[in-house]
């Protein structure tokens, strides 16, 4: 009897989940449809005004026409790889500096007090404003861009790590020590799993800013990357190619964010 009830409950729970997913897909599809319609309308406006007619390739159908060339020529892939490489290194640097800095902020009162004002100040400076300095300080343009990305991405990681540490129940350490935990055990079994969710949330934010910063950062000094491709298409009046690149930036960003979200879910133990 009990078993029957529980099977009935699981199957109805499964139905609920399917309904929820379908509903979400439906709304996503409709939302995308509206976006596409607006895009199309914008393209139509450009096309129907003689003053802007030369920009008509921004519209959806010329853009779709430009996709095969962008893909087959390898332009899109090369540009994505170049940007992805800079993003990856920049983000990695931001993570390996942001987490220790966040731990310092979370664990040391003196460091927290000392660093709070300068960090809040630095955080408010647009990462792109460092560009002239980065170009002088770094031997190559590539490294300058990576530096800019790190500057943008380090704050969310550091602040999220500190916030995660602040939420730890201090009694966990007492319990762990009581049960014979070593310093290493406490780090591995208590601190890291406890803050993984917050750190991952910070990384997601960092990825978001880094992805936004990378395009304008690639406008100057280099001949690869999605930012460069935008600049290059603009100069050659290839507006269809430009729109395809924008589309690619959006899709890649969306996918990376989705991966981060999945990881956040994986590391989350919080109940609301």
């Amino acid at each position: 009897m009990a078993a029957e009830i529980s099977t009935a409950q699981t199957s109805s729970a499964a139905v609920d989940v399917i309904v929820m997913v379908l509903r979400r897909l439906f709304f996503s599809a409709v939302g995308l449809g509206i976006l596409f319609a607006l895009w199309w309308f914008g393209g139509w406006l450009l096309e129907s005004n003689p003053a802007t007619m030369s920009f008509a390739d921004f519209g959806p159908f010329p853009t779709i026409d430009a996709v095969p060339y962008m893909v087959q020529s390898g332009t899109l892939l090369d540009a994505s790889q170049a940007s992805g490489y800079r993003l990856g290194i920049g983000l990695l640097l931001a993570i390996v500096t942001g987490i220790p800095v966040g731990i310092l902020m979370g664990r040391s009162k003196v460091f927290r007090k000392l660093s709070n004002t300068p960090f809040q100040f630095l955080r408010m400076v647009s990462p792109l404003s460092w560009e002239p300095i980065a170009v002088i300080a770094m031997p190559t343009w590539d490294q300058a861009i990576i530096f800019l990305i790190s500057m943008a991405a380090v704050w969310p990681v550091a602040f999220a790590t500190a916030a995660g540490l602040a939420k730890l129940d201090r009694a966990w350490f007492k319990v762990a020590r009581n049960l014979g935990a070593s310093w290493w055990d406490i780090l591995k079994e208590i601190i890291l799993p406890a803050i993984a969710f917050d750190v991952m949330t910070g990384i997601r934010l960092a990825l978001g800013v880094a992805w936004i910063v990378i395009v304008p950062a690639e406008f100057l000094g280099i001949t690869s990357g999605l930012g460069y491709t935008i600049q290059d298409s603009r100069e050659n009046l290839m507006y269809g190619d430009l729109a395809v690149t924008i589309l690619a930036i959006g899709i890649i960003g969306f996918l990376m964010d989705g991966i981060c979200l999945a990881l956040i879910k994986r590391f989350s133990w919080h109940r609301n």
């Binding site: 129940d169 009694a171 966990w172 007492k174 319990v175 762990a176 020590r177 009581n178 049960l179 014979g180 935990a181 070593s182 055990d185 079994e189 208590i190 799993p193 406890a194 133990w269 919080h270 109940r271």
Partner: peptide, 30 residues
Amino acid sequence: PSPKWVMMFQAPHLFPWMQVSQNVGIGLKF
């Protein structure tokens, strides 16, 4: 501190990212 003399507190202070059996086994893991 030593697992030979263990203290329990007013609140359970369990590790919320671990299921019951993992919480119980954590000291043995240490």
